[in-house]
Every structure is written in C-alpha cells, then in structure tokens.
Design a protein around this nucleic acid. Structure first.
Length: 419
RNA sequence: GCGGAGUUGGUGAAGUGGUUAACACGCCGGAUUGUGGCUCCGGUAUGCAUGGGUUCGAUCCCCAUAUUCCGCCCCA
C-alpha cells in the first residue's frame, strides 16, 4: 500500500469542519477590515526565497523543497507567504495605488523533521499591508490577530512583542553582543557557539544557557535603537494600550527571517500540555523587502499563522466548532413504489436551494432514520402510498419529533418558514 | 540534520514463539415488511506497518525500510 509522505496529512472528516470554521471567521474579519484576497503560486523561482527570506536563514539553507523542473529551472516550493506576495506586488505594480491590504491562505512547504504541530506541508493564512509606515498600522495588524483568536474561541494566548530596529542599529547591536559574549564563549553550549558565528541574536533565547550570568548582563536591543525606531516602537505600544490589547515586551524576541525591521511579534498558545510547537502566529514589519526585491521603497507590515497549530489549540481547549454541515431534508420513500416520486421531490427541493439527500438503496426503515440522524437532517420527509394518493407529504421535525401532513404544493413554503 | 519511544480491524485497545487474535464502540443483518435512536440475538482482522532473517513453526525474537510521536535545532 502506498502511504502518505512524511509530514503530510489528509484533511478529512472533522478537520474539514474545523478548517472551514476558521476560514469562514477569517474571511469575515478580512471583509470588515477591507483587506483583499490574493493567491500566488505555491512554487516560485528559488532566487525569490534566497533573496527574500534571507540567504543565511535556516528556512532557506536547510528547509526548502528545491528541484529543477524539466526546463532546467531552479524551483522552490514556497516555505512562507510573504516573499511571493512581495513579488506579485512588484510584478503587477500594485504599489501604484497605496496603501494596499492583502490576505492569503494556502499550503506552505518546509523540509523538516515532523512533530505534532509541525508538518512538511502545512497551511498558513496571513495578512500583508503595503505602503503604510505608521505605528498605528503595526498595532492594527496585531489587533487583527488578537481579534481572530478571540472570535474562534481561543482563550489561552499570549502576545510577545519587540523591536529589532533598522539595519544599522541591528548591526551595531550584533557587534555589541559579539563583544559581550566573547570572553564567555567557552562557557556557552555548543549550539550557542554556533550561533555566535551565525546569528548571535539567537544566543539570547537559548534554553540551555538561559540562567547564566552573562545572559542577564548582555546588552539590550532597546539601547541600540535609533530615535526614529524607538519612537516607532513606543507608539506601537501606545496604540496597543489604546486598543486594550494585552502584550508582553520580550527583548529576546528575534525572528528567523531576515526581512524584518522594527516591530516583531509572536503569539503563543498558553495551554497546559500543548507541546513545544506553541507559536501559533507571528509577524512584523519589513520596510526594506520590497526595495531589496528590486521594487520601489515601500514599507510593509504583516503576519501569518499556522492553521494546524490553531486547530491543535482549539482541540486542546476543547473549543466547540460551529459547523454548517446539517442537511435541510432527508427524504424517505417507504417502498420502491414511491421511489420515482421521491426522486422528483428531491430534485425539486434542490432546485429551490435546499440541501437534500435520500437513500437510493433498499434500506429498512430504521436504517433510513438512522442515516437521517447521521447527516444531521433538520426535517425528514416521508413519502408512501398514502401520501402519493392524497398528494401530501409527512414531514417530521427531527428535533421535536413532531409530524405534520403538508400539501405537496405547499411544501416549499412550509420549509421556507420553518428552516 | 541529531537523540529517544511507538506502529495490532472503521475507532479505542488486550494479548501470545504453536489449533478459532480478547473486550468495547461503530458498522451490517435479524427480532420489528410506514417511524428509528432502548433492549436482545447474530455477523464483522485468512491477519497484527512493509520487506528480509532466525526457527519445525513468528503478530511476538533479530535486521532493514516506511511512518507517527517526544526532545534538540528551527519554526507556523
């Protein structure tokens, strides 16, 4: 038997309900915020991610699905959504009318060792806002996320926020860290010694070395921000307070993608026993990316969240998902003699936009009633010898179990009123 | 990429080197040929992830592969 590939899953059964639930709420939210849908390809030129996400990031160096197509092109399956959208904004010259607010949802691919909440093909939904440099928009974007988590019924979430400033201040800070950790290098764990070379900012959130003295005395990025970045960050916090959004400043928060500038944030699921993959959404500002990708200088801010992790969080908190999968009517022909009448009836109801089903096999009555329950039918319509003769139908409300006889010609009206 | 633990029907699972692989739910059939969800009876894995090996004999022991989970790295 051929099995699914490592780190993939089939979306089916209950998960479909949960996915539709999330998508429906997110779509409504996007509509309220006047954010427009965009759908970009799941594969792009490999160069896009090398330049966009960052040549040295782990996502690009060891996690992309790269291949050559039959035309010898270097292709990469998208590991995240932002780079492709930036490409699209530049290529379609969407920046001519700014600001432009976009949202997306779809599969992403990363070649990693899977765990719960971590897949090789997973879904992200996100928002990207171009052409608005104000701290208000940073706060706004965070508020969208928080609002979304609230609406889906998730309670245990925690927003962490930080500013990593512009390129120059980050460079200065980096040098300060290198200077600071140099004498302690031998005390640090092996991973941190690697981080010292590759990405010294990451040393700060090491789990092994977190208690060490040199961690607490390390310089803080806030002290390296220039006036403009500092003001921007303060204003973001001010607006968050204004909108009554709870957050925690985390001066050790640095993100793994190179394109961020100034504001960065993460949302964590704070649920007991949730596991280590607990970041369910993240984002930040990326004011240089469009320009770096050969577009004009357009500031941008956005976020993305992981659908599977959010579904995990909903399950962990036992949130009941409201699904719209109930059937309006289930039609039961009593015997084969009424089959033709039943077929016409079902067809007619569907033309009138009711969701209807019936059993075409020769099941016994009890089995048919059971099936009606399984489909969550609101009404059971019984059509037998007597009904055909009198041109009536027996309609049973499957909730109250009450039965009424309704004239065939009045059926649509009856259902319109009662559903 | 590194380290560890699993994998038995549709589902939750018990179990053993040797005739028919417990039990429960679900599903199917019957008691009940126009009204069910209760009850009772019956059926429901020629097979224990896949491929090799050891053995008279393997679901059980060994090896490999696939896959899931946990920790690390990293991240959604």
């Amino acid at each position: 038997m051929i099995q699914k590939q490592k780190g993939t899953y089939d979306m089916q059964g209950e998960m479909v309900e949960k996915y539709n639930y999330l998508k429906r709420i997110f779509q409504d939210l996007m509509n309220e915020y006047n954010i427009k849908y965009i759908d970009t390809p799941i594969f792009e030129s490999s160069d896009l991610y090398h330049r966009g996400v960052g040549e040295t990031t782990d996502i690009v160096t060891k996690e992309t699905y790269d291949f050559k197509d039959r035309g010898d092109r270097n292709i990469t399956l998208r590991p995240e959504g932002t780079a492709g959208i930036v490409r699209s904004v530049i290529e379609n010259k969407l920046y001519t009318t700014l600001p432009i607010k976009l949202w997306y949802e779809g599969p992403m691919f990363r070649y990693e060792r899977p765990q719960s909440g971590r897949y090789r093909q997973f879904r992200q939904a996100g928002v990207e806002i171009f052409g608005d440099p104000t701290p208000l928009m940073d706060a706004n974007v965070i508020s969208i996320m928080v609002k979304f988590y609230e609406r889906i019924g998730l309670r245990g979430i925690k927003v962490r926020i930080n500013s990593i400033g512009n390129k120059e201040s980050r460079e200065n800070y980096r040098n300060a860290l290198l200077e600071h950790f140099k004498p302690y290098l031998n005390d640090l764990c092996e991973d941190c010694q690697n981080r010292y070379e590759k990405n010294p900012l990451r040393i700060l959130d090491c789990k092994v070395d977190s208690d060490k003295e040199c961690m607490n005395t390390a310089p803080k990025i806030v002290d390296y921000l220039d006036e403009k970045s500092k003001k921007h960050f303060d204003d973001v916090l001010k607006y968050l307070d204004l909108m009554d959004i709870k957050y925690k400043i985390d001066d050790k928060l640095v993100r793994g993608l190179d394109y961020y500038t100034d504001t960065v944030f993460e949302v964590e699921a704070e649920i007991e026993g949730f596991g280590s993959q607990n970041v369910i959404g993240a984002g930040g500002r990326y004011n240089n990316l469009v320009e770096n990708m050969d577009g004009p200088s357009v500031p941008a801010v956005g976020f993305a969240f992981g659908i599977e992790r959010i579904i995990n969080a909903l399950d962990a908190e036992d949130v009941k998902v409201i699904s719209d999968n109930s059937l309006d009517c289930y039609v039961i022909p009593v015997s084969e003699n009424e089959l033709e009448n039943a077929v016409m009836l079902v067809n007619n109801l569907r033309d009138n936009a009711f969701s209807v089903d019936m059993d075409y096999t020769n099941k016994k009555m009890p089995a048919k009633f059971k099936e009606a329950d399984r489909y969550n039918a609101k009404f059971i319509i019984i059509i037998g010898e007597e009904e055909v003769k009198n041109n009536k139908l027996t309609i049973k409300d499957n909730l109250t179990k009450e039965e009424v006889k309704v004239e065939r010609d009045n059926l649509i009206d009856y259902l319109d009123v009662n559903i």
